[in-house]
């Protein structure tokens, strides 16, 4: 049996504590946090954000991920938002017709329902093949507010800004 990702996605969530960004290596920093729903820290449910240490105000990813205890289906991210990415995204030949075969170079949203309605099996395996652009390009504060609203994390203000103070350039 597997958790119903649509219920997890729709539920109002909170961070159980204030997580901090960790420097993973010379290039990247990561913040991960468990997620609470109705006061319960849900097994396998996690928030993850990634940023580049030397790229302030650019290329930050936020995602919700769920890994079932038995990894069957294997799980993975089920919603992701990419802010000012260095890499673009191509929906290939799926998703909204007007976005097919278009390279989305700006901030974009691997929106849960769009992907879920396309293929529940793919989403359960962590494949978020479809994204939609977010326009106009939001500021960092705006994208964090957007993440909170879309991921339904009520205390999103507990998410600290990436630590770009050690930028080498």
């Amino acid at each position: 049996m597997h958790a119903d990702l649509s219920i997890l996605y729709s539920a109002q969530k909170t961070f159980p504590f204030r997580s901090k960004w960790q420097f993973r290596d010379a290039e990247w920093m990561v913040l991960t946090s468990p997620i609470d729903i109705d006061g319960v820290t849900v097994e396998g449910l996690k928030f993850r954000a990634m940023a580049m240490r030397q790229r302030p105000d650019e290329h930050v990813s936020f995602q919700l991920e769920y890994y079932p205890p038995r990894r069957q289906p294997r799980g993975g991210p089920f919603a992701r938002i990419e802010w000012r990415p260095l890499r673009g995204h191509n929906n290939k030949m799926i998703g909204p017709p007007e976005l097919r075969n278009k390279l989305q170079k700006c901030t974009h949203h691997h929106e849960f329902w769009v992907n879920w309605n396309h293929s529940q099996n793919s989403v359960r395996k962590g494949a978020l093949d479809i994204s939609v652009p977010i326009e106009p390009e939001p500021s960092y504060d705006q994208i964090v507010a957007f993440v909170g609203k879309e991921f339904r994390i009520s205390n999103i203000d507990w998410l600290p800004s990436p630590d770009w103070s050690a930028t080498m350039f």
């Binding site: 990415p85 260095l86 890499r87 673009g88 995204h89 191509n90 929906n91 290939k92 390279l103 170079k105 494949a127 978020l128 093949d129 994204s131």
Partner: peptide, 12 residues
């Protein structure tokens, strides 16, 4: 940015 895609659909 190159015309190669990771499995996620992100460009390499």
């Amino acid at each position: 940015s190159l015309p190669l895609l990771y499995p996620s659909g992100s460009t390499v």
